[in-house]
Amino acid sequence: MTKIDTIIFDLGGVLIDWNPEYVFLNAFKGDREKMQWFLENICTMAWNENQDAGYPLEKATKDLVEKFPEHEKYIRMYYGEWEKMLGGPIVGCVSILKSLADNKDYKVVALTNWSSETFPIAKKRYEFLSWFEGIVVSGEEKTRKPFKEIYQIAIQRFNLVPEKTIFIDDNILNIKAANALGIKGIHFKNPAQLISELENYKIQLS
C-alpha cells in the first residue's frame, strides 16, 4: 500500500454541522413538510451550490425573489439568517483533525464548497480552521466540487501526489470525482467510522 502523506478534509458535514433546517424549521413554525417543500423547490441545494461557486449572494437572492415573489420573506432569510444555520463543530472529527495536524508525518489541508462571502464568518467562529496548512474555498476559485478543476487547484497549490492523498467528504459524488484523479476517498458517515477507515490506511491517531 502506498504510504499516505496528505489528508484533505471537507468542512461542512464533516467538521462543521451546517443545516438550513436550523433556520427554516422555526420559520415554518415546526411544520417539517412545509419546510422540506420550500428547501426542495425554492431555496434548493442546487441554488445554494451556485453561490458556493462564486455567484453573488445579493444577486442570487434578487433572482429568486423575482422568480418566486410570493416566497420573498423566506428567500431573504436564507442568507439573511445564514449564520444561524451553523450548528457548531462536529467534536469527534475536530479531535481527529487535531491529531493529524499535530503529526508532522502528514500534510493536512481542506477543500470546501463554501461562498466566499460567508466563509469569513466560519473562520472567525472556528479556531480549528487555522490548523490547516491551507484551505481551498470554492467561492474564491469560482468553481466547486465535484468539478475536476477544484481538485486540480488543490493538487497544484499544495504540491500533492494524488496516490498519496486521502480526501474525506460526506458527499459520495465528491469522493468519486477525487477518485477519478487518483485520490483515495473516505465517504464520511461519523467520527468512529472515519477513525476505522483511517486505520485501514495505516494512519495512526494519537
Rank of each mutant, 00 (worst) to 15 (best):
F24H: 09
T6P: 11
I121M: 01
G13Y: 02
Q152R: 13
P56N: 06
I90S: 05
L57C: 05
P69R: 02
V91Y: 01
I172A: 08
K3M: 13
W37G: 12
V91R: 03
F68L: 04
C43F: 04
G80A: 03
D5Y: 01
E197D: 15
E83S: 13
Y201W: 12
E127Q: 08
M35L: 09
K73M: 08
M35G: 01
C43M: 10
G88F: 00
K148R: 05
D170L: 09
A180P: 02
R157Y: 09
L100W: 01
K202W: 00
K98F: 04
A60N: 03
V94R: 02
K142P: 03
P89A: 15
T165D: 06
Y22L: 15
L160K: 03
T143I: 13
S115I: 05
E117T: 13
G30H: 04
Y74W: 05
V136W: 01
F128G: 08
G12W: 01
E127R: 15
L173V: 11
D10C: 12
I155R: 06
L129S: 15
S130E: 14
G80P: 03
N41T: 06
I183M: 11
V94E: 00
E199A: 15
E40R: 08
G88D: 00
V23Q: 06
K67P: 06
V14E: 11
G30N: 10
K123I: 00
L15G: 05
G54P: 11
K142T: 04
H71R: 08
H71K: 09
W18V: 15
P56M: 04
G30W: 02
V108G: 08
K124N: 14
D170N: 14
N113L: 00
K84I: 12
W82N: 02
N174R: 07
P191F: 02
E40K: 11
Y55F: 14
M45D: 08
V108I: 11
W114V: 07
A60D: 00
K59S: 11
L205Q: 10
M1P: 08
D63E: 13
E133W: 04
N50G: 09
D105A: 14
P69E: 15
K67V: 11
A101P: 06
Y151P: 00
A53R: 07
E49R: 07
V23R: 02
E133M: 11
G182H: 05
F128P: 07
S206F: 03
Y201A: 14
K29N: 14
S116W: 00
E199M: 05
K142R: 11
Y78R: 14
N19Q: 10
D52T: 10
P69Q: 09
V65S: 06
Q193F: 05
K73D: 10
Q204E: 14
Q51Y: 01
R76V: 14
E117P: 13
E81V: 02
I166D: 04
Y126R: 11
E141F: 01
P120M: 07
N19K: 14
F147Q: 12
M35W: 02
P56A: 12
K164F: 01
Y106S: 10
F132E: 08
P56F: 03
L15H: 00
T143H: 04
Y201P: 13
F188E: 06
L100N: 05
E21R: 04
F9E: 13
Q36K: 14
E133I: 12
A27R: 10
Q204K: 07
K98A: 14
P69H: 07
F38C: 12
K104R: 09
E83W: 05
E72P: 06
Y201I: 15
K145Y: 06
M1R: 04
